[in-house]
């Protein structure tokens, strides 16, 4: 009884020790150009809509986005009918009048349906690994959107001599280089309605644009308000400085 448990623990400790050692080697994610960066940046709506399609058709089978509701998608330029159709295309859990758990078509007010009912079920279906919720992923990682893009496009063959655990994949940018998620994107995996070529870098870029919007849906309103607030404060400071000078004129 005891020996396997101890072995397991030893493996666990070894893995835990390995992570920081390798983390130091991970290259810095390359800076990408994002439509939403800078003082005046906004989300490229077409890219974000394509990114949503990639999420829906690829990521959503394992990854939840539980802090989003379908109604939020209106901000990406989907009209009311499209939002309704997107929501109706998803089965969400509910209780019927008899109190039984049932699935019904989604409504715009519903949260994004999660692929697994809970973390245990998610781990059981994924070889013990937990596919993280993606709502905040670009905000919750050092390096933000650049890092997520780097991981999505950073799959490589393991260098010779690298001990890859069974069921793991080699990724240049993931801390420790061992990631449970198999390469999620492949060329022409989805068909974009606007005829954009669905290459891996294109899909990754669009997906990260969508995820960045999901993490910070307030970004555009925030920056627009920020410009106004700061201009106002500069004027107010100037006025107050002039008042201060006048009031103090007889002291100096």
């Amino acid at each position: 009884m005891r020996a396997p448990a101890r072995t397991l623990m030893a493996v666990g400790i070894a893995a835990a020790l390995a992570v920081p050692a390798f983390a130091a080697e991970a290259p810095h994610p390359a800076k990408q150009h994002w439509s939403f960066s800078g003082f005046f940046g906004t989300f490229d709506r077409a890219a974000a809509q394509r990114g949503f399609q990639v999420y829906k058709e690829v990521c959503a089978s394992c990854h939840s986005m539980q802090y989003l509701s379908y109604r939020h998608l209106a901000a990406l330029g989907f009209n009311e009918e499209e939002v309704k159709a997107i929501a109706a295309g998803v089965e969400v859990p509910d209780l019927n009048d008899e109190g039984e758990a049932v699935k019904r078509p989604g409504r715009p007010s519903d949260r994004f349906a999660s692929p697994f009912p809970n973390e245990k079920a998610a781990r059981a279906a994924n070889n013990g690994a937990f596919p993280v919720d993606l709502t905040l992923v670009t905000k919750a990682r050092e390096g933000g959107p650049d890092y997520v893009y780097a991981v999505l496009t950073g799959y490589k063959d393991a260098p010779s001599g690298f001990q890859l655990q069974p069921g793991m994949n080699y990724n240049e940018y993931f801390p420790g280089h061992q990631i449970a998620m198999p390469p999620p994107l492949s060329d022409d995996q989805v068909t974009f309605a606007d005829n954009t070529k669905a290459s891996v870098p294109q899909m990754a870029k669009d997906l990260v644009t969508f995820l960045s919007w999901a993490a910070e849906p307030e970004l555009e309103a925030r920056k627009a308000m920020g410009i106004k607030v700061i201009l106002f404060l500069i004027v107010l400071s100037g006025l107050l400085y002039a008042v201060k000078r006048k009031v103090w004129a007889d002291v100096h």
Binding site: F232, L233, V235, L236, L239, L240, A242, V243, K246
Partner: peptide
């Protein structure tokens, strides 16, 4: 000029506070 400056600044401050 001083009175005008004071009033202008007061008005700007009031607009800021209301916002």
């Amino acid at each position: 000029r001083r009175d005008f400056l004071f009033m202008l600044t007061g008005a700007a401050g009031a607009v800021g506070a209301a916002s």
